[in-house]
């Protein structure tokens, strides 16, 4: 396997208006926290809160497009949302190879999305398999 324990992959993702609207069309989630600026402010946020599951689609991109092989399949992923993400915020994504199971071609990553202020937007675990 072309993976080394503790290797860290880094990538930058941004929830642009295009990403936001495409996800909204796909999910059909029109909850006012995500669509109504005034509603979100009344709830104590500085603006519309971006859909947390957009970050899951960034993980899909990372696994599908950024690894040294395309022969991959996601077995599982978990996500904990720690802090809200707002429109056009740059998120630094870091994924560390946390475990390798070579007998069954499995790799596990610990990942986090870091906001420009340094706070963690979300974190979790991903398990992938290498399709042989």
């Amino acid at each position: 396997m072309d993976f080394l324990l503790n290797h860290c992959y880094k990538q930058r993702y941004t929830v642009t208006p295009e990403v936001y609207s495409h996800f909204q069309m796909c999910s059909k989630d029109l909850n006012p926290l995500h669509t109504d600026e005034e509603f979100a402010r009344k709830k104590g946020f500085s603006g519309k809160v971006m859909y947390g599951n957009i970050l899951n689609s960034f993980i899909s991109h990372f696994i599908g497009e950024s690894l040294p092989t395309k022969d991959v399949i996601i077995h599982s992923q978990s996500i904990s949302f720690m802090n809200p993400v707002f429109m056009n915020e740059n998120l630094d994504f870091e994924a560390v190879v946390s475990d390798l199971f070579e007998a069954v071609n499995v790799i596990q990553f610990k990942y986090k999305f870091i906001k420009p202020c340094g706070k963690i937007a979300a974190k979790g675990l991903i398990q992938i398999g290498i399709i042989v």
Binding site: E102, A103, G129
Partner: peptide
């Protein structure tokens, strides 16, 4: 696959 991963983790061993 998941069984092997869990067994390896539980017993802190690695198979080939």
């Amino acid at each position: 696959i998941q069984l092997v991963v869990s067994i390896e983790k539980h017993f802190n061993i690695r198979f080939t």
